[in-house]
Design a protein around this nucleic acid. Structure first.
Lengths: 273, 273
DNA sequence: GCCAAAGCTTCCAACATACGGAATAGATGC
DNA sequence: GCATCTATTCCGTATGTTGGAAGCTTTGGC
């Protein structure tokens, strides 16, 4: 019953499973036997794998050799991952501009499976709470404005798949039922943005627009998170307008070779001289 | 001759090597044969490992199955890594405060081996260039103010080790020779901060203070990056003072159990019911 | 301070897995 | 359309991985 013990075979998979577990453990870290127990592995096996991971710089062992946690090297390596279509690079100046102009916190979200992941955020002066939280944070697709904006503009089959999968996950977080969710999605598609203070986080509001690709499908969302009083009826349309403009700008910068995308682009150094 | 072909054995190591390579490749990604060539592996081996990595969600394969790149899941997982001693959590509000107060960009750097890694940054309104660049960025320890602040306040043996290792790496980036570097380090130790426009990045200046642990050794650095005219003789001491105050605040929030650190802290759920 | 218990590490023989050559299928480009 | 390069499948082999057992270290109780 512990973890899904059907499957994990290769040492690579075990290694990744351990990394996952250590990610869960966050800064608290985990001890060797914790890991062994949680993953149904024997201590020697865990020991060997952890040793490898430490040698490779993916995991750090605490001084007293007691606790293991993810290493900064892993962080630095993976930081280069969150940039699909160069989205993060493209959006960074835009986000800076937005947070400076709007004086609110801006989020960049992309889809990852059935979640939205926060790729970047640019802080405004107003402290806020949000679902996505920090960079790397995840939310169920459909919860929160940015996340909803992406969901609403997914290709139809994908959208249906996500809805089917996510409905059960949304219990008790404000999504009442399928009808409600579908109504919301239709609304967002209609308006072109997601706003509406859901009341899920008291006093917090947000508004998000999708970033679309050439086919009109969402690749990301630009989202503003702020305190409710800053998104009144007067300001909302202004904010939406600005967001839209920027999102359109991003769309134009997305790799223009899309349909065929036979673009070799810069390639690795050969390694050899 | 390509890569260091002495060593790589286990599939875990190969998997990690591939992840590293894909990190290098950035958004461009790499094809199967690219990887095989660069790592001296046979295509079937690479194929198998990549397949596993894709299944595990660490790597994404491009539609046409042509190019592989790091997946967002990896990004999200590793985002939980960059928080040693809860530093990032502790520093986030401080950095927000600093960037709001100073209206400049603030960096949080920590040491990772012989480099400094940017854990977090909080943007100010003035666009800047820096060595560390984005979150996850690395610099050689000793280059740039934040990095230098850390180096200067490392325990002596470690400092010496880093100096020895890094001197060759500093060729042509403004560190003239060992004497110069040591003078700088002494200066920083003496003043308690690193400033001095190195002139390496024209028009850019910065100032950094170390974040010290109980023993007085650097665990991180708080750094301000800005345009040179904003760090004149009048403003510099003000900025330094503010930075110092905040760094001292961080120091007090660092886990107070340090000397013995027998703190179990929150532990993983048992997994089994 | 001692002893018991739990955790960590080393060793090694049995085993399973990952390996890579060869051959096939699929792209790409000339 | 053919030649070349790339991706994928197959399979016998060898290599790396496994986990029991046992030693060693740390932790915790008394």
């Amino acid at each position: 019953m512990t973890v899904d013990d059907a499957g994990a075979k290769s040492s690579l998979q075990r290694g990744i499973a351990i990394l996952r577990l250590l990610a869960e453990a966050n800064e608290a870290g985990a001890r060797l036997t914790d890991v062994a127990r949680a993953l149904n592995l024997t201590p020697p096996t865990v020991h060997r794998i952890l040793k490898t991971l430490v040698e490779e710089g993916m995991v750090e062992a605490d001084k007293g050799s007691k606790r293991y946690r993810l290493a900064i090297d892993l962080f630095a390596m993976a930081a280069r991952a969150g940039n699909p279509n160069n989205l993060r690079d493209i959006c960074r100046p835009i986000m800076l501009r937005l947070s400076a102009t709007l004086r609110d916190t801006i989020f960049l979200l992309v889809r990852s499976g059935f979640d939205a992941v926060c790729l970047d955020r640019s802080e405004g002066p107003f402290p806020i709470r949000s679902f996505t939280g920090d960079i790397g944070g995840r939310v169920t697709l459909g919860i929160g404005q940015g996340s909803l904006a992406i969901l609403a503009f997914l290709p139809e089959e994908e959208r249906e798949e996500v809805i089917r999968f996510n409905l059960p996950r949304m219990q008790g977080v404000g999504i009442l039922d399928e009808v409600y969710l579908r109504t919301e999605i239709a609304r967002v598609r209609d308006l072109g943005y997601a706003s509406r203070s859901t009341g899920l986080l008291p006093g917090m509001s947000g508004v998000a627009v999708p970033v679309l690709d050439r086919e009109g499908h969402a690749v990301a969302a630009l989202s503003v998170g702020t305190i409710s009083e800053r998104l009144n009826e007067e300001r909302l349309p202004v904010v939406v307008d600005i967001l839209r403009r920027e999102a359109a700008g991003v769309r134009n910068q997305l790799n223009p070779f899309d349909p065929v995308l036979r673009r070799p682009a810069a390639v690795l150094g050969s390694g050899a001289a």
